[in-house]
Write a protein that binds this DNA or RNA. Structure first.
Lengths: 118, 118
DNA sequence: CAATATGGTTTCATTTTGATACTAAGGAGC
DNA sequence: GCTCCTTAGTATCAAAATGAAACCATATTG
């Protein structure tokens, strides 16, 4: 197989575009812990809008990374969970958020140095 | 320090937003192999525009992940290279592209299944 | 009878992105 | 000496994505 993300028309490019997204990373990170309902996700991912959360979940579901279950309660309950395929990805996206948290101070320092010299 | 990417105003959120980006991932992946010049990057990252490449490189440089060296040749040579800080990140972003290449078929299958049932 | 909760969709203004053209400086070919 | 090519970008403008807010149906609570 000749898949290569560096070729624009390669389908892997579309997948990378989906995953290399701030909101997708945060959603997958939350679902990795446990299944979560729509509004709970919205509350836990500070700053995400309903529209974007809805769109991200729909795309992740379409890609087979997330499953959606509806329960006929009142009001309706919709629970999102990670799939086995999605589970193979979570350690990678978790590494991204961990890197950000571990190296934020070095990054901020570099930014200040850059801004002073400019 | 209480850094948490799930808080909107946390500086780590800005870093995640920078890294969780298709173009940044592809640029870092190329620079991980060796220093590369501007137009060579543009040629190797199929589909990137000059403007976006320029912006991404500038931000990565500001964050201390990439260094920029200018040589007074004719025409001028500008070489971009990964920094030690950037080097601590490349294995993570490489894992992202590798996941995309390894799991693309499962994703495409999930998409077809989803589209058929809709 | 109004307020709150569920999980969304719709609308519209603002941002971001991408495609294209343009810059300047020098070398190569004719 | 004229034209084209290369370098590494910036400027411009249309198109697409995003974000904030309002709206929807349903049903329970106060």
């Amino acid at each position: 197989m000749e898949y290569d993300v560096y070729i624009q028309t390669c389908p892997t490019r579309l997948v990378l575009d989906r995953l290399a997204d701030k909101w997708a990373v945060l959603v997958l990170g939350k679902l990795d812990e446990q299944p979560v309902r729509f509004n709970q996700l919205k509350r836990e991912i500070d700053g995400i809008s309903q529209k974007v959360l809805s769109q991200v979940l729909k795309k992740l579901e379409r890609d087979g990374l997330v499953s959606r279950s509806v329960y006929a309660t009142v009001p309706v309950t919709v629970e999102y969970a990670i799939t086995p395929l999605g589970r193979t990805l979570t350690s990678t996206v978790a590494a991204l958020t961990r890197w950000a948290e571990d190296n934020i101070e070095a990054v901020l320092e570099a930014q200040q140095k850059y801004d002073r010299s400019a």
